[in-house]
Design a binder for these strands. Structure first.
Length: 673
DNA sequence: TTCACAACTGTTTTT
DNA sequence: CAGTTGTGAA
């Protein structure tokens, strides 16, 4: 039976007292707590400490001030909100939500900043254009006139996703003027876009924007339409707040306490804003307390600061207890971070099973391994790549098909993550959302556990009162008959089959917003797919057929991944990154070397473990892998397995190095093929 | 042999 | 989008 000793209880209490002291003396602090230490618990306690102090509370009320708590994600915000409950003296918000709420009413300043940005970007585009014109000794006026012509642009955008040869052919057919030149494909495209950007931006400046808008669902700025995205929001805020004392004062007057959750993931610009307010408060001799809560070693995102700059300005408080894992796991993760942090279990008698490390040749059979070790309950497999997750969860064919479309290729590669693999369904691409809804509809029809209301929800013209149960069951039976071969049907076949039944047809029209009864369903959906996948109505139907030829089952598997339904086996799959903040009884971490455009991702870490002479780049890489491995391994509560798929399988030196971290290193050789 | 450019390829996550 | 690989011309 694991228990917390009186001594450890007291020690934990003392740590909280230290934070409370800082708060009472309005001294800013940085609270560093290892994985599984109960960081959020400390954050919540700190807030409660202020609220329990009647004097402080009255002061807040009298001055209509609030405690500000900013988080990195919505999930973290919800959790803290959940634990603390609603209270008018606290403001809990994500960084972006908070800053936008604060700055959006300062439209005059925002517009000023925005005009500046438009001018900057316009100048950049002009320079790019000049460069091109100079390189090819073109006449500026003629060039500009030609490439901003509407008919030219039609041809241009219709073909710019093509290869170089067909592109030039199309351009020359439109106007044989271009036959006189031999431009570089890429540079010509850039130059045309630059010219039109100049036009767009100067138009926007002339129109004099009346309002700048932040769109959280959009990942890129649309400057000409006065729409900004996440990073530009932080950028404008930093510039505006640093420039205007009055805004620093406003922040200070409204929020005498600012707590930052997961500070290591926070953008530098946000830290700068807070530092600026802090400095203002010091100059004016006013009370202001900043508390950073986090763990520098759990920094795994590029934009995060990692360690706090000018950390010496803060009282450093560490919590070295672990409330999550067995002593065996704690000892391993302690060795992974290897900074002598000295984390230990808060419990006594918290011994568990030992951690296992397996080296194996590439192509390890994970399912076999799970079966052999009898792992089903509360078990998670952590893999490096989304691609491998897609394979394990049975939708890699869909991923392959979809990544070929312009929406997801070339400069839009990032959209695979933003719109297709996105777990937040509000952020999923608009057409994919309709597809997900369609999958949900079919699942609902097929599932015996669905209620009448759940089914009817998809059929706008039916209401429960309008239809008898008999007719309803008959309808469901008919639809199911059409879907009898669902396991092997393509998504197109599913749509076509359903449309043969009047109610099915209507439901689909509803899902895909087909308002005109005269429209053919399949044609309409394909047009929407074209709009989405090609950004326009110009695309070749051949590749579109590939999309609609994917088996429904694959879409279903993708749907289950998005909504985090575990598989039949009860095993869950996440990426190492995606596991952050979660915990499981059994964790299997699968490592490989070809990741992040490297072929020695893990090898470099293991080889240089305990070997402090690394150049800057090498150290950066090393830390990156170390932090990720630390995050992944520290998810485990009871049992941790690490499987390293490597070609350096036979390398004894490597095994020796790994042995410094993991007590049991074993080689598993897969049978010769 | 070098250079320039086209073509290909692929990490993760959040706002 | 960025970084790398492949191709073809000088």
């Amino acid at each position: 039976m694991k228990t917390i000793t009186k001594e450890n209880q007291n020690k934990e209490q003392e740590i909280q007292e230290k934070i409370n002291m800082c708060i009472d003396n309005s001294e800013s602090f940085c609270f560093d707590a290892g994985a599984g230490a109960g960081k959020t618990y400390a954050l919540v306690k700190s807030i409660k400490h202020i609220l329990q102090d009647q004097d402080k509370r009255r002061l807040l009320k009298d001055r209509s001030q609030k405690i500000l708590c900013i988080t990195y994600t919505n999930a973290a915000k919800d959790e803290i909100l959940d634990r603390i409950g609603y209270n008018s003296e606290i403001k809990i918000s994500t960084i972006h939500d908070f800053l936008w709420e604060f700055i959006s009413i300062q439209q005059i300043l925002l517009i000023h900043e925005h005009r500046e940005k438009l001018r900057d970007e316009q100048i950049k585009a002009e320079e790019q254009e000049e460069q091109f014109i100079e390189n090819y000794s073109l006449d500026k006026n003629i060039f500009e006139k030609k490439v901003s012509d509407k008919r030219f642009l039609d041809v241009f955008y219709k073909n710019c996703h093509e290869r170089a040869d067909p592109f030039w052919k199309a351009i020359r057919v439109h106007d044989d003027f271009w036959g006189n030149y031999k431009f570089s494909f890429g540079k010509f495209k850039d130059a045309v876009k630059a010219v039109n950007r100049v036009v767009k931006y100067s138009q926007a400046l002339e129109d004099n924007p009346s309002k700048v808008e932040y769109r959280p669902t959009q990942n890129r700025d649309n400057l000409a339409k006065n729409i900004i995205s996440h990073d530009t929001l932080l950028d404008y805020c930093k510039k505006i707040i640093e420039e205007y004392d009055i805004l620093q004062q406003m922040l200070l007057d409204s929020y005498p306490y600012i707590f930052v959750d997961e500070y290591q993931d926070t953008d530098k610009k946000v830290i700068d804003i807070i530092s600026c307010v802090k400095k203002y408060a010091e100059d004016k001799n006013k009370s202001f307390t900043v508390g950073y809560f986090g763990d520098a070693l759990q920094s795994i995102y590029r934009d995060g600061i990692g360690t706090l700059p000018n950390i010496d300005e803060y009282e450093l408080i560490q919590k070295k207890f672990n409330r999550r894992s067995t002593t065996q796991i704690i000892s391993v993760i302690e060795k992974v971070r290897n900074d002598g942090f000295g984390q230990q279990s808060i419990y006594e008698n918290n011994e568990g099973e030992s951690c296992e490390f397996y080296l194996t040749n590439i192509d390890f059979d994970l399912s076999e391994f799970l079966k052999k070790n009898d792992l089903t309950e509360n078990t998670v497999c952590l893999l490096l790549k989304n691609n491998d997750i897609a394979t394990k969860r049975g939708f890699s064919e869909l991923l392959d098909v979809i990544s070929k479309f312009p929406r997801f290729s070339e400069q839009n590669y990032g959209n695979i993550n933003n719109e297709f693999l996105q777990k937040n369904s509000l952020h999923i691409g608009w057409f994919l959302r309709e597809i997900l809804e369609f999958v949900k509809f079919i699942e609902c029809i097929i599932d015996d556990r669905s209620t009448v209301n759940q089914v009817i929800h998809f059929m706008p013209e039916l209401t429960a009162s309008k239809i008898t149960f008999d007719r309803f069951s008959k309808l469901i039976k008919n639809i199911r008959l059409k879907l009898a071969n669902i396991e092997t049907m393509t998504i197109q076949e599913c749509i076509v089959q359903l449309c043969q039944i009047d109610e099915g047809d209507k439901a689909i029209r509803n899902i895909f917003s087909i308002n005109d009864e005269n429209d053919d369903v399949m044609t309409y959906i394909k047009n929407r797919a074209l709009d989405y996948l090609f950004f326009s109505d110009e695309g070749n139907s051949e590749s579109l057929d590939k999309f609609f030829g994917v088996k429904f089952k694959k879409f279903e598997n993708w749907h289950n991944y998005i909504f985090d339904k575990s598989m039949d086996t009860g095993i869950k799959y996440y990426t190492l990154h995606g596991s952050k903040g979660l915990e499981f009884d059994n964790v299997i971490v699968v490592l490989q070397d070809n990741f992040a455009k490297r072929d020695d991702y893990c090898k470099q870490f293991f080889e240089n473990y305990n070997n402090s002479i690394l150049n800057e780049k090498g150290q950066k890489r090393f830390n990156e892998v170390r932090n990720l491995l630390y995050v992944a391994c520290s998810r485990a509560k009871k049992k941790l397995y690490v499987i390293y798929e490597t070609e350096q399988f036979k390398d004894d030196k490597l095994v020796e190095k790994i042995g410094k971290i993991f007590p049991n290193v074993e080689r598993i050789e897969t049978e010769q093929e």
